[in-house]
Nucleic acid binder design. Structure first.
Lengths: 197, 197
DNA sequence: GTTAAAAAAACGACCAGTCGTCTTATTTTG
DNA sequence: CAAAATAAGACGACTGGTCGTTTTTTTAAC
């Protein structure tokens, strides 16, 4: 099958884009670098994507999916309450970022800052990705509320928004401090204190 | 005096750099664009700065100064307690960002994401700028503590760090939502609730 | 007239995107 | 069914232009 090969190429392009765009940014990454890495000829790129901008918009969606799956895994785990699921999930993230030596951070945060208000296409894609992510975190927080572990006087959505925002900021701090300490403090402040019943 | 002209040129370059780097990012802004804007010939750039990277590192410091002055103004204002100083300051920021139609956001946040872990020079500059800013916010929080308006069981430094992080995240959200709502919620959650006694 | 600062010109490398060409599928026709 | 016609996909060379930086020339200061 040739159609399969095409899907594989596209998948490879997206996966490589996640890595390169996260580490070097949108304007800091050339198409050639991406194409060389996945051994796709320059001329073929535009058979897969109409433009670099549209490609980046797809990369954004491709990036967030695993995170949603990962947290959803914790959420579905029987015998694990919502608050513990959140804690376990973020601890795993922190562990991974430490192992990766704080490289890259979050593609969403990086691109929001770099092109969040200059590329309409990417802005919409970022909006959707963050919304999906935040909504899922809100589910975990709501579960924690019904289980009596999380305060009830704040809406899950509002708490999720604060959690996402503080986490994004902590990721930026991680990058310049070269340490996961900001991440740990962020989770401790919110999940370990502010959100707690 | 010719030395004065040189200082003016350098100042103009830095001021223009703040605007362009904030709105378009590091890799998204060419030297030519900056130089054209302040009418400095391209060949002259390296009489002012050794490299683009070093220039950006200086732009970062040039960016944060007014914010420090602005908040310090509120802090010095007699009859204004620490918590109110923080609230007034951030409300003024929000007002300004709304008037500017959410453009740019925060140079520090944007550059932390884009080049915070690829340019060592800028990393150090960002580190210093954030540290200075956060320390000043901590002074305001500490003042609020002695005045009995802010909780005492958390250190001013830790609260300032959380405030900076959440604010950075809220700025990113502002850019993609094209709304100051995230900023308002961020300040309300932290200054209006979590930090309060 | 000598020295140092300023600016023009030039540098190779790279940018996103397009070109015509060649190869492979798909469809049409007998 | 097979052969011919057509369309779609793959591809590397190339486009004009811009990148950050360096070299060379011009200008200004003393």
């Amino acid at each position: 099958m040739v159609i399969a090969k095409k899907q594989i190429n596209k998948e490879n392009l997206l996966a490589q884009g996640v890595q390169l765009l996260m580490n070097q940014g949108y304007h800091g990454t050339g198409l050639k670098e991406i194409l060389d890495a996945v051994q796709v000829p320059k001329g073929s790129f535009y058979n897969y994507f109409p433009s670099k901008e549209s490609y980046a918009a797809e990369v954004i969606q491709h990036y967030i999916e695993p995170f949603i799956q990962q947290f959803d895994g914790y959420l579905q785990q029987p015998g694990l309450d919502g608050l513990s699921a959140l804690e376990s999930y973020f601890n795993e993230l922190i562990f991974g970022l430490e192992a990766a030596e704080f490289k890259g951070g979050c593609l969403l945060g990086n691109l929001m800052g770099e092109i969040g208000d200059t590329s309409e296409l990417c802005r919409k894609s970022l909006q959707l990705a963050v919304y999906r992510y935040q909504s899922l975190l809100a589910v975990g927080l709501k579960k924690g509320q019904t289980e009596g572990r999380i305060r009830l006087d704040k809406s899950p959505e509002d708490m999720a928004a604060l959690l996402v925002n503080a986490w994004q900021g902590a990721m930026l701090r991680m990058k310049i401090e070269q340490s996961v300490e900001p991440l740990k403090k962020c989770i401790k402040d919110l999940l370990g204190d502010y959100f707690r019943l």
